[in-house]
Design a protein around this nucleic acid. Sequence first.
DNA 1: AAGTGGTCTAGACCACCAT
DNA 2: TGGTGGTCTAGACCACTTG
Lengths: 244, 244
Amino acid sequence: MAKGERSVATDTLVKKIMDDIQQLPTGSGTMQLPPEPELMATYQVTRYTLRQALKNLSQMGYTFQAHGIGTFVRPRMNNHAISLQNPVGMTDEMARQGRHLTTKHATIQATTVAEAAFLPIGTQLDSNTPLWSVRRFRYADDKPFIFEQSYYLRNIVNQIPETALYGSLFNFVEKNDALKVGFQDTIIEAGSMSQEMAEFFDMAEKSPTLSVRDDSYLSSGQLFAFSKLGYDARDTKLFLFKKI
Amino acid sequence: MAKGERSVATDTLVKKIMDDIQQLPTGSGTMQLPPEPELMATYQVTRYTLRQALKNLSQMGYTFQAHGIGTFVRPRMNNHAISLQNPVGMTDEMARQGRHLTTKHATIQATTVAEAAFLPIGTQLDSNTPLWSVRRFRYADDKPFIFEQSYYLRNIVNQIPETALYGSLFNFVEKNDALKVGFQDTIIEAGSMSQEMAEFFDMAEKSPTLSVRDDSYLSSGQLFAFSKLGYDARDTKLFLFKKI
DNA sequence: AAGTGGTCTAGACCACCAT
DNA sequence: TGGTGGTCTAGACCACTTG
């Protein structure tokens, strides 16, 4: 088992159930899972572990449980909306939709908070704080898709080699610096494109854009990165599932 | 105890802890809660109930737990972003920010799916399905704030008196029809204002707007409403907290 | 080593829905 | 009334952080 990838019965079970759901006959109307006692026997777990897994699946919007009735699989959306709750990173999120995300151009340079184009929302940073400034131009199936500007605190993330810029930076950070990402604040705004951004999308300046700002914290509660993703508003929708 | 408001120890505890957090001294840097054994004693609950409550608080972004370190209160955001995860409805969400949300004008009329201006994302509806069309013009501190168009399935929600339009429609539906709201799908888009919407906001036609589309389901999994909230993009931000 | 939170077990009882 | 999911108890052991 790789570092930081402990075997958690609940997580294993979530994956198993998701896989088994995929195998279910698709055209059979609303799909219902077996009752909990049967699932406990099938997967050889206690009710606690089973219900943790089902709760996770519910919160992701894959299933829902109806009191006194049963557990059901939700129909899959096949629009191209981007889930704000994907726990897997953009690349996998896109792959799940049958789209291919690539980074064709990326740059990194050292800078400081004083020079940053924007700042995190919830945390005060000293203006001398050293940062990495990372800029990435990302494409979905060879169409311009994300204009990304992100900043990493150099005090926490020591090195980011050029090659790492073309993969998942969070995965790199977790492995290379033995850090654990804990949570994120996200701010969504509508705006208009800068000239540079408009060039990337090959659109007119001030074209409408959706921007997603993330402040990322370690599980210890310390801020380690903040970023802004710019999308073409005309063909990007964001998706969110909420349990009441 | 009112109908549908069972006394759940976890929910009660969540409220208690939130209240107690409010009472904490504010200027004392990062605020740490007592360790779990002490909290169990203080609130006279078992560890299961305590941790359910702390998990809920964490998922709302009020606190976070750091393994081996402790439980901490997150600093309060004081920007005016609208939380996409508020479990309480818009009115309370705004009140929490010190803003006052009012509905100054509202209309309701019977219609059908065929006449609807938009449709739910995840569910196919027969075009003859009878709907209530509800339109509300909502103000924050007397400034135009939300342009709302929503549809309720008449087969499920029998009656909506005019007076109910000026309060929380979900609360009304839950009480009047003895229904229980289960979950929502949300789609966020950026766009430009219709002429009617621009009039409400007293802005130019095609001004930028953020739109939030909700498909609302009962806990039984049945769709019962879908809606679209239009915001002025220039002074509205949406907020989201995500645990990794 | 001591203290913190994270995971899991085994079992009980309750609430909701169908019949 | 029987079957479903929802809540809670009491306790064990594990993993992470700090000294």
